[in-house]
Nucleic acid binder design. Structure first.
Ligand SMILES: [Zn+2]
Ligand SMILES: [Zn+2]
Ligand SMILES: [Zn+2]
Ligand SMILES: [Zn+2]
Lengths: 151, 151
DNA sequence: TCTTATATTGCAACAAAGTTGCATGATGTG
DNA sequence: CACATCATGCAACTTTGTTGCAATATAAGA
């Protein structure tokens, strides 16, 4: 399993270090994007805050991960699928930000629709974030309602 | 002209104070969203940073202004058009963030398109930001190229 | 394996934005 | 004009992002 991450680092000419492998395995295991503070907590204090910051910055520049800003403007990171590289990210999928658990989901299968922008303006990238309640939180809410009904 | 702002404050049961009127007149005069730091600079040190923060927070809650996060996750604010109120903002227009001048434009005429989200997820709001080069910056770039040709 | 150039990390220090509590002052109502 | 309430200013603090520099780990070549 580690081989996957090692070859990923090699592909981008990055040295294989413990902190980097930790970051990759954490991000890969989750189906939601992760903020730096959360990553810090998960990795523990073996890795310095600044190191983490720089790892994330490097990974983003190399097209290994992409950044999504949450409700508060805090950066969250998720693995780029497939074919992103240093020169162009193709993360043109929609993101869903749950306002209850605050998780950010990459909706990889949902493409950002095209729009017409005013003439004179040139668009390079677009960002589409949907805010609401995720599946897990919806189910929890249902369960809560049901358990109250039973009483 | 001030009457407009005064009645706006009255409508929302907010006291008419100098700092609030300043904020409203600045935001209304601009066709781009404004960050809090910029507002601070424009208003000057008559108004405390925290006061400004609270004014913006109140205005946003009342549906007088809406918040857009820029590239760096910094909050920018723009007047809500027409019919927003305390209970629902209807700011479902696309925003354009210029990567050169960093201005954020409200594209009031361009609605955010609907998308299908996975079943189980419930969306309440959506955010669409287009990043690129705005009209002004495009023209400046053209002029620059032309002036170089002439030499 | 040892050596060396260079990439990476840790620490310290700082900057920017957001946030809270509390005392003081302004506003609007009767 | 008095009073209740809203709004402001100040101080203090948190979180996130960022840079410089010295110490260390990595990879490649001898
Ligand atoms: Zn959720
Ligand atoms: Zn994503
Ligand atoms: Zn511009
Ligand atoms: Zn807008």
């Amino acid at each position: 399993m580690n081989k996957e991450f090692i070859s990923l680092l090699e592909k981008h000419q990055l040295r294989k270090t413990a902190p980097r492998l930790s970051v990759l395995s954490i991000l890969k295991a989750k189906n939601t994007a992760t903020s730096q503070p959360d990553l810090e907590a998960m990795i523990g204090k073996d890795v310095d805050r600044v190191t983490l910051y720089r790892i994330l910055k490097t990974f983003e520049e190399k097209g290994i991960i992409h950044k999504i800003l949450d409700l508060n403007g805090t950066a969250n990171y998720a693995i780029c699928h497939s074919s992103c590289n240093e020169h162009d990210h193709k993360d043109n999928h929609v993101h869903f930000n749950c306002t209850v658990c605050l998780h950010i989901y990459c909706l990889d299968n949902i493409q950002i629709p095209d729009i017409k922008i005013p003439s004179g303006f040139v668009s390079h990238t677009t960002n589409f974030v949907s805010y609401g309640i995720c599946e897990k939180c919806s189910k929890k809410a249902e369960q809560y309602v049901n358990s109250n009904d039973e009483e």
